[in-house]
Design a protein around this nucleic acid. Structure first.
Lengths: 203, 203
DNA sequence: GTCTATATTGTGATAGAC
DNA sequence: GTCTATCACAATATAGAC
């Protein structure tokens, strides 16, 4: 029973920490900020997660486990290209409509600590090299006149950047109208797969 | 003479501050870090820039004045689409090959302080709405079967994201080989305009 | 302009009562 | 588990000598 409760507090702390870290970034966020957000005292944070680093780590892993498995599942699904492309676009855009701060949060941390990337891949059991070579074997990139990595980069770019740049894009292009911005993102779920199919034909 | 010198120190501080802010982000960077990087004492920082906030502000403006004018010049150049697209792609990619940390630095700050976006536009004398409506009047988007804003978003995405995601992309796709990564970015200067021209034809 | 010294507050982290 | 009290230290910022 007390274990039940403590586990619940742990989850509440993680939720609060996620909010604060997403909003302020690791460096600018303080333990006090997080305690306030969670409605508890600072000391209790240290009781549950020994340090700020460990708490951040927990939040980061939580974020990655939210994103990566969805993508990996699709990459291992052996779907034909015509279904794979809309699928991957939908996974990315839907995930980020739900949590739009994820891209900046993740990219900022990976920029500050690039050694996390291989760690992460290993930990989550992902081997991108294998996936790509399987895709090649399955003729995914047949007739593509350039390096498939350029194609993959473009998929990621078209899906993720509109969220990484949300404040800029929403302000400049949508007059800070949140509804119009979100509508445009839904529209993008239909547009981007079309763009990607065209892209496969370029030499 | 002393003004000359003090101005030089000011520039050296800005250079050092830029390095540290780019590397650690605003929150995690300390005045001590910056003083060390500049090879001076912490107090001297406060002498030149009254506070950390003001110093950060100076660095941020400096970064924006480095990027924005190049883009605006092209947007006001009245070039036909076939020359405009390679031009804008080259400006973005060349700027970011030179300073790859810019995207994350800028996006992180705009995410934390979205009110900066309209401020910035006003300060730099940019009116994107005007530019877009002029482009429409000049038949830039004739025959485009969807909202031109989706097209503009895609330009930005394809150019900027590969740098925002540099650590991830370089590690996963280029085995942390910096030379191979940079080569791919040069390759991209040729590829992205082709992609964009195809994109104009989609309905 | 540049330094040393210092004021002041904030921050992460622990000890100990309940 | 949760609190109060407290520690050690780092941070920004200022005052004042030179």
């Amino acid at each position: 029973m007390s274990m039940e409760l403590s586990n619940q507090v742990e989850q509440e702390i993680l939720e609060a920490a996620e909010k604060v870290f997403y909003r302020k970034g690791k460096g600018a966020a303080s333990m006090q900020d997080i305690a306030d957000e969670a409605g508890i005292t600072r000391t209790l944070l240290n009781y549950y997660f020994r340090s700020k680093d460990k708490l951040f780590d927990a939040v980061f892993r939580r974020t990655m486990s939210y994103m990566v498995p969805r993508v990996v599942e699709l990459m291992n699904s052996n779907l034909p290209m015509e279904e794979f492309l809309p699928g991957i676009v939908e996974v990315f855009i839907d995930s980020m409509i739900e949590k739009p701060q994820i891209p900046i949060f993740v990219l900022q941390e990976l920029t500050a600590n690039p050694e996390r990337v291989p760690q992460m891949m290993k930990e989550l059991g992902v081997d991108p090299a294998k996936t790509v070579s399987r895709m090649k074997a399955d003729n995914y990139f047949d007739g593509l006149g350039y390096d498939p990595r350029q194609f993959i980069m473009s998929i990621l770019s078209l899906c993720i950047f509109p969220f990484a740049g949300k404040p800029m894009i929403r302000s400049i292009m949508y007059n800070d109208d949140e509804v119009a911005y979100i509508e445009a993102m839904y529209e993008r779920k239909k547009l981007v797969p079309k763009i990607l199919e065209q892209m496969l034909k370029i030499q």
